[in-house]
Design a binder for these strands. Structure first.
Lengths: 219, 219
DNA sequence: ACAAAGCGGTTGTATTTACAACAGAAAAGA
DNA sequence: TCTTTTCTGTTGTAAATACAACCGCTTTGT
C-alpha cells in the first residue's frame, strides 16, 4: 500500500497533506488495497458500500445496464479520483450502479465513518482531509450537473457539441483526446452508436471539426 | 429569523440539533434571511456564491436557459432542502444555473466557511452540522444520479416511466401528486411539451396509468 | 363580470433517431 | 503469420420526436 502513497498525495482528498502524514493516517482511515483486471467489476449494483474508494491505478467506469440491455455510462474515474462518496450516509441504501474496470486497476478503500469523523487522538491532518472531502464531493456534484447539461440537449449533434466543447475547455485547447471509444461515447451521451458515428462524420464534412480515432479538434 | 428555527430543526442540515442550539448557532454560522416573490431570481447564472442556502418557505427551481431559449429544469427544491452546496470549494467558479422562486419563497443563507469549519469556541453541535452536511450533499449527489437515470432513457415514454416509477416509489404508493405542471415536467425531462402530453395520453389510453391534473396513478 | 393569460390536449409535417445489417480497417490473440 | 475479434463508418427503413398551430377550459387580474 505504501507504494501508492505518492499517488494519494496528488489526489484531491489528500491535498495539502504530506506523504509521511498520509502514511501515518492509512491505518487510522481503515485503508485496504484491491486490484482488478480489465473488465472485472469493482462494485455491483445492489451491493452495500461503507467505503470511500480512491482509484490509484487504471481507469473505471460508473455504469448501469437497464432491463433491456441498454448501457449508460454515468461517469468515468481516472487515477486520483474517488467514487462511492454518494453513499456516505448510513441510510443511503444499496448501490444503484456498477463500477467496472476498463483497464487493469487498483483502488484503495477507506472506511467512511473514519474519514468523515475526526479522531480525538493524533491524526493532526485529519480535519484537512474532512475539508478536502467536502470540496471533492461538491466538485463531483458540479460534474454531475455538467453531465446533465449534455444529456438535456435534444439532438445527438447538440449533445456532441455540448460534450466536445466542455472537453476543449477542460483541456484549454481546441485539440484534445477523449477517454472513450465510439461505443463508450455513445453510452456516455445515451445515444445510438451508429447514429452518433453518422452525425460525427456529417459534422466533419461540414467543417465543424476534425478527428482521428479519439483525437479531436474543433474548428 | 427566529420564526424559522422550527423549520430549520426539521431540515437535514440541523438533524439532531435542538431549537435552542440552532438559535445560538445562527450568528456563528453567519445566517441571513431573504424573501422572494414568485418568479423572482434567487440566484443567477454567472454570480459568485459563498453561501449554503436553505429554503424555509415556498419552492424554487434550479434551471438553465440555453442559447436557443430551451429551458432545462435541473431540480426542484422544497421547504427544508438546501442548495448551493456544489459551490463550497473556493475554486468552484461561478454559478452555472439560475435559481428561481416558483412560489413566494424565503431562504436563509449561511456562510460556507463557517459551516464546514468547526469553530474552536462554543457551538457544541457544530460538528454534528458538519456531518449532516456530508449526508445532505451526498444525498443530493444520489438524486442527481437518479435524474441522470431518467435523462439517459431514449424515448419520451421511457423517460416518463422512469420518472413516474421513481415518484411512486418515493411516495410508497401508486397514486401521487407531482410538483410540476406539464410544461415544467417537460422541461425537467428535457422533452417537448406537446409530444409528452401526447405520449401521456397514449399511455392512459393503453391502461398504463391514470391522471388528472398533477395527480397520477400507475396501474 | 370581463378580458387576458396560462394550461392541457390534439393534429400534421418535416426532421431526427433507433435499429439492423453489412463491410473494411485495425487490433488482439494463437 | 494467420485467424479472430473489435472498432468504425455507412446505408436504408421504420419509428419517434420537435415544432408550430390551434382549440377549449381554467385561472388570474382588473
Amino acid at each position: 500500500m505504501e507504494k501508492y502513497v505518492p499517488v494519494l498525495k496528488r489526489t484531491r482528498l489528500f491535498s495539502g497533506v504530506t506523504q509521511e502524514e498520509i502514511s501515518s493516517m492509512l491505518t487510522c482511515l481503515g485503508a485496504r488495497l484491491f486490484s482488478y483486471k480489465k473488465g472485472e467489476y469493482v462494485l455491483r449494483q445492489g451491493e452495500h458500500l461503507r467505503d470511500i474508494v480512491v482509484l490509484v491505478e487504471g481507469r473505471v467506469h460508473i455504469q448501469r445496464d437497464d432491463y433491456w440491455g441498454n448501457r449508460s455510462i454515468l461517469g468515468r474515474i481516472d487515477v486520483g479520483e474517488m467514487f462511492g462518496e454518494a453513499y456516505v450516509a448510513p441510510e443511503s441504501g444499496v448501490l444503484l450502479n456498477d463500477v467496472v474496470a476498463v483497464e487493469d486497476s487498483t483502488v484503495i478503500m477507506f472506511d467512511v465513518r473514519r474519514v468523515i469523523t475526526t479522531c480525538p487522538s493524533g491524526c493532526r491532518f485529519h480535519s484537512m482531509v474532512v475539508q478536502n472531502m467536502f470540496f471533492a464531493i461538491s466538485e463531483k456534484n458540479r460534474k454531475l450537473v455538467q453531465k446533465l447539461g449534455h444529456m438535456s440537449r435534444r439532438t445527438t449533434r447538440e449533445k456532441l457539441i455540448s460534450y466536445l466543447s466542455e472537453e476543449a475547455e477542460r483541456h484549454s485547447s481546441s485539440a484534445f483526446t477523449i477517454p472513450f471509444n465510439r461505443q463508450q461515447l455513445a453510452d456516455f451521451l445515451s445515444v445510438d452508436r451508429s447514429a452518433m458515428s453518422n452525425e460525427l462524420c456529417k459534422m466533419r464534412d461540414e467543417g465543424l471539426l476534425e478527428f482521428e480515432k479519439n483525437n479531436f479538434r474543433l474548428l
